[in-house]
């Protein structure tokens, strides 16, 4: 018991929570935006992989770190455009299109990475984002220690959750997005173009996913390696359900999830006799449990996964 308390009382744990949560926040918000407009984006896993790869590559070739994140976002937007073309214009199965985007984006990442950076003993590295001290906040006891370990993209993720909550619930644009996700026919009757809204949401959402991937290579680690996303994208999809499609709860869900993840990492070193694989599988099992608990209560956007064709019911 005292082990558990020691772990929870350490500022290192809470610093890790924010670090682990950051890519999940970006990814979950991105997926949430797509789904609010009625498009399930299972391209997320591959888009995060591509964002991680291309952001890293840009910085490796001399771009600065923010440019790296921007490049990742643009690449994500391109894959979003692909997914939107398949699911919005052609109205294809969102499940299968998304998987196609994931398989394509991740294999393309590995191909381009290997092509540009030939195989070597130790993977090349870049200088990642350094932690920043925010004046005043850094002086607070405990919280200061937690926050001063964070890099700028983490703050960006936290602000983004607030911004998205505001946009979705407090602006005409947000209303148009929600209407499109609930009932595109009614949205069209109100003068909203559901096709345009869906395209926009999927493109911007995919850009956010890619930034989440970029955080991994530009802040959390300093190199790219295949399979580094490790199912984070799928976890984000689960977190959107857990959050009942609300940005604020998505932020909470990502932090809660990151807490369990950071906690199990520390417990792993403190507890003997339990195979480390048991700890590693907890995040995935937790996601499944969270889905089961929330799926019934969650208010699913009513037109999610339904293609919209003008003049067709």
């Amino acid at each position: 018991m005292s082990i558990v308390l020691d772990i929870i009382a350490s500022s290192g744990l809470w610093a890790a929570v924010l670090r682990i949560a950051t890519p999940l926040i970006f990814g979950t918000l991105g997926a949430l935006l797509c789904e609010r407009a009625g498009v399930l984006n299972l391209g997320i896993e591959g888009i995060m992989t591509f964002g991680a790869m291309v952001g890293w590559l840009a910085v490796y070739h001399g771009a600065d770190l923010w440019t790296g994140l921007l490049v990742a976002a643009l690449a994500g937007a391109v894959f979003g455009l692909l997914h939107a073309s398949l699911t919005v214009t052609l109205g294809l199965s969102q499940h299968v299109s998304g998987l196609g985007v994931t398989l394509f984006a991740s294999s393309l990442s590995y191909y381009l990475f290997r092509l540009i950076v030939p195989l070597s003993g130790s993977p090349p590295t870049i200088e990642p984002f350094a932690p920043v001290n925010v004046p005043l906040l850094a002086d607070l006891p405990f919280i200061g220690a937690v926050l001063s370990a964070q890099t700028p993209p983490t703050y960006l993720a936290l602000l983004l959750a607030l911004l998205l909550a505001y946009v979705v619930f407090r602006t005409p644009l947000g209303l148009a997005i929600r209407m499109t996700g609930e009932n595109p026919h009614a949205a069209e009757a109100q003068g909203v173009n559901p096709m345009a809204v869906r395209y926009g949401a999927v493109i911007v959402g995919s850009a956010l996913m890619a930034v989440g991937g970029g955080f991994l290579t530009l802040s959390a680690f300093n190199s790219f390696f295949p399979t580094m996303i490790q199912g984070r994208g799928w976890i984000c999809i689960a977190l959107v359900v857990f959050a009942s499609w609300r940005p604020g709860r998505a932020l909470f869900g990502a932090l809660l999830f990151a807490f369990f993840d950071a906690f199990q990492l520390r417990l792993q070193t403190a507890v003997d006799g339990v195979p480390y694989q048991v700890f590693l599988m907890t995040p995935y099992i937790l996601s499944i449990v969270a889905l089961c608990v929330m799926a019934r209560r969650a208010r699913v956007p009513q037109a999610l996964m339904q293609p919209y064709r003008r003049g067709e019911r």
């Binding site: 199912g231 689960a238 694989q277 599988m281 099992i285 889905l291």
Partner: peptide
């Protein structure tokens, strides 16, 4: 039972399964 989308759960179980094998 819970109307949980099987896409996400079956995907997540892939990671669990490989870890079970590894264990």
């Amino acid at each position: 039972r819970f109307s949980v989308d099987e896409v996400v759960t079956s995907l997540l179980l892939n990671f669990v399964a490989v870890l079970v094998v590894s264990m």
